[in-house]
Amino acid sequence: MANTDSFIDEVSEEVRRDRLFALFRRWAWLAILIVVLLVGGAAYLEWQRAQNQASAEAFGNAVLGALDNDSPEARIAALEAVEAPGDAAALVVALLAAGEASANDGTAADAAAGLRAAAMAPELPQIYRDLAIYKAHLLSPLPADEARLELGILAEPGRPFAALAEEQLALIDVIEGDIEAAINRLRSLENAAAATPGLQQRAAQLIVALEAGATLVDTAPVEEEPPVVEPAPEAPAEDAETGTGEAADAGAEDAAPEGEDDGGDTAGDAVADEETEAVVEQ
């Protein structure tokens, strides 16, 4: 019985070993593939992370280098030359250029156009898109009808800049002379939950001013026209040495007749006689 049991155990062990080897031969490639995929995926993710970090560092260094220029024009030109690695980075560059253009009136329209173009990126988050459009409106507003359409989208409930866009719409109403509509918008801003205390205070102050009859005044500097310089009269065509001198001599002869010359000599003789008498008296 003992020999029989040992023989059965040996056969069973051989059977299990054969089954295990068969399983390995059947599924070993799958296990190796899983290991290769795990190692390769981890290596690819690490490489991609390193590439993104290097790209971000290069982009940051380029932006900092552009901002190191002295004049706003040079900074704007350098920012336009920066290659953005993505839509969000392109919007950051556009916002920085707009910040530089706000102090430089000559490039405000170009900066606003760049912001509006950057806001059209499809993968850009909504808050950044609204920020770009609002900043573009502050830099270079569109005509009233187009500005209403642009700001109307930003003023929709739930948008991050809805209250600020509503304030700009009220200002457009004031510019167009619709004071009642502007006051209604401003009163809604006073009670809006999304409005900040500063915005509510501005709305209240503007309501008081509009109800008192105040109007907007254009504070833009008026360009003065340069003074008109009239040309000097042309000199007579006569020779300077002959004609002009002769005319002067003729005028002098007409202005001083012969009697005045005698009077001048008489007056001189009288002064001389008075001096002689004073010397004699002394």
Rank of each mutant, 00 (worst) to 15 (best):
A89V: 01
I175P: 00
R185N: 03
A267Q: 15
A56P: 00
A155G: 06
A270N: 05
D18E: 14
A109W: 10
Q126T: 12
L206A: 06
S102C: 00
V36I: 15
A98L: 08
Q53P: 01
L169S: 04
G213S: 07
D70Q: 13
R187K: 12
F21R: 14
G251Y: 14
V92L: 13
M1Q: 02
D70H: 03
A248D: 08
A248P: 00
T266N: 07
G251F: 15
A89D: 15
L210V: 05
V15G: 03
A58W: 11
A147K: 01
D273G: 06
E211V: 03
A256C: 07
A88R: 03
L91P: 00
I127N: 15
L186D: 11
V39T: 05
L96Q: 07
V35A: 13
E230M: 07
R19D: 09
D5Q: 13
P85D: 08
G65E: 04
A195R: 05
A214D: 14
N69G: 10
A89E: 15
A31W: 14
A182L: 01
G60P: 01
G106D: 12
V93R: 14
F161V: 13
D18H: 12
R159N: 12
L79W: 09
E46V: 12
F161D: 05
R116Q: 02
R202S: 06
L20F: 12
A111I: 06
A42F: 13
A74L: 11
V36M: 14
E253H: 04
Q168I: 01
A103F: 13
P122N: 03
Q53Y: 09
A28T: 05
V39A: 10
M120D: 10
D5R: 12
E100W: 14
L23A: 11
R187M: 13
P231F: 02
V280I: 15
A237M: 05
V271E: 14
Q168M: 12
E83L: 10
A121Q: 02
A220M: 08
G99W: 11
I179K: 05
L91G: 00
R75V: 04
L38V: 11
L33W: 06
P226W: 14
E123P: 00
L67S: 02
A136N: 07
G86Y: 14
L37E: 08
L149W: 05
I127Q: 15
L199V: 03
E258I: 13
D145V: 15
A181L: 09
A204S: 11
